[in-house]
């Protein structure tokens, strides 16, 4: 499959995770077997890293608190950031981890049942890492949009039913 076709395939399944291989083949004008093999190879090379469902948990439960935690660190040695990242991302509470440029180094997205649980995690697990100089925890008050999806407004088709 050509690079352009792979890009189209990835863009399509990134937005529509539940299209079948047959449907993808039809839409992209390719053979089903090509789609199958390409997807398998993209999975094994960890380009396709998983299929998830985007859920607005705020509407389901009150036991869902998120925080963005800034970490300033003093990395040890050449691969200091990498080793720290390895350690931090192992925690199941950590949902996302980014190394950033700017006034702090890591941004950690932490999930918990309540503020206390997250505070405890930050103080006992993150702040206690030797290389971590300081932490700033921002609790998420409201999520408006995630992964390109507007959580508040379900798009309705505003068009008239029939037009020329």
């Amino acid at each position: 499959m050509q690079k352009k076709e792979i890009l189209s395939l990835l863009e399509l399944i990134e937005q529509n995770g539940d299209l079948s291989e047959l449907e993808l083949a039809i839409m992209l004008n390719l053979k089903e077997i090509e789609i199958h093999e390409t997807i398998e190879s993209l999975k094994s090379s960890n380009i396709i890293c998983g299929y998830h469902t985007l859920i607005n948990w705020d509407k389901v439960t009150n036991d869902d608190v998120k925080a963005l935690v800034e970490l300033r660190v003093t990395p040890q040695g050449g691969d200091g950031y990498e080793r720290l990242a390895e350690k931090i991302k192992e925690y199941p509470q950590v949902k996302a981890l980014y190394l950033l440029s700017g006034s702090y180094d890591f941004l950690v997205l932490v999930d918990g049942k309540n503020i206390k649980e997250i505070s405890l995690f930050v103080s006992s697990k993150l702040a206690s890492i030797n290389e971590v100089q300081n932490t700033t925890t921002h609790f998420v008050l409201r999520k408006y949009k995630d992964l390109g999806v507007d959580f508040d407004n379900k798009k309705v088709d505003e068009r008239m039913v029939v037009t020329p």
Partner: peptide, 11 residues
């Protein structure tokens, strides 16, 4: 509850 495929404009 009509599904319309009758529209002559972009979605």
């Amino acid at each position: 509850d009509v599904i319309s495929l009758g529209v002559g404009e972009p979605d």
